[in-house]
Amino acid sequence: MTDFQVPVWGYWVMGAGLAAFLTLVGMYVKKNRGFKRPLFASPYVLWLALFTVIPCLLVAYFSFTDPAGNFTLDNFKNFWDSNYNARKAIDPKELESYLAMGLSLEDLGLARNAINIDTLVFSLWMAFLCTAICLLLGYPAAHIMADREFKLGPTLVILFIVPMWMNFLLRTIAMMSLLEDNGLINNVLEMMGVGRQKLLNNLAAVQLGMVYNFLPFMVFPIYNVLNKMDYKLSEAAMDLGCDKWHTFYKVTLPLSVPGVVSGITMVFMPAVTTFYISRLLGGGKVQLFGDLIEAKFLSTSLNEWNVGSALSLIMMILILASLGLLRKADPEGEGGGIV
């Protein structure tokens, strides 16, 4: 399949790791004179090391090496500058002389096509839009349901929780079949005399699919916080002469921040990392960061895996950063932890 070779040190590291693990277990047994309960976790310690820790380190290893296993920063340079490879192919002196002749990069066929960094920026923008739309649609919905006078609220919330358990891929496919050329929406449009429209394979379809998939993740945490909030606080504000708008703006909104923050992270993170929503609803015409990573790994050329690893590393850092932000804004997990 590929000509990838395990570097010699790979075997050494694996052997040394196993030996270290066994020594540690042995030392532990000796120190405690026999079997102690923490040893029940030892198979899983080994499993975690092999299938969680080492794979994460491998992502870092592949992103800092070339296919031959030599250290390089090219994968990241490649990421920052999409023309990097093309420039590298041309002799830099030759390139300079072309540029001196007044030819632009576009003339030389080195135009910046939207890959890598551009895709990341675009992807962040799409995720940001999706989060904003979900917040705008979801906050009022959560607020209405959390209203104490609205008796149906707690029942209706279940209808928002259930979609969170539904399989994303299947929900995306349902959306796809709704938007298809002979899907329900187009049939309705034709009956109304508007005529069939191309609804699939464009940006709006991808955005719609993202909002459709992730909206419940915004509604639920906000509802949770608003529902637990002491309603006497807003009543007190009203008694003290605040009008409805000011009560909301000065009391309810600030108190609901933890819910909003967890909602934002819970929508933003999957929205940045998705690849099948854009693939199915964008028909390959809309490329998000996730699609880019997928494409790099589906490619058979080995160098692409290194670039793909660099991209995954960047995504990992992005996710960790947003998780850190969440911890800071909502330390007690008030927004409601859902699996």
Binding site: T52, P55, P270, M315
Partner: peptide, 25 residues
């Protein structure tokens, strides 16, 4: 450590495991 696979996006977990299988051939 136990939390890593749960917080990591699926695509990263999938790719890191894929790299493990590539690496160990």
């Amino acid at each position: 450590l136990n939390n890593i696979p749960m917080t990591m996006p699926d695509i990263v977990t999938g790719i890191s495991l894929m790299l493990l299988f590539i690496f160990t051939q």
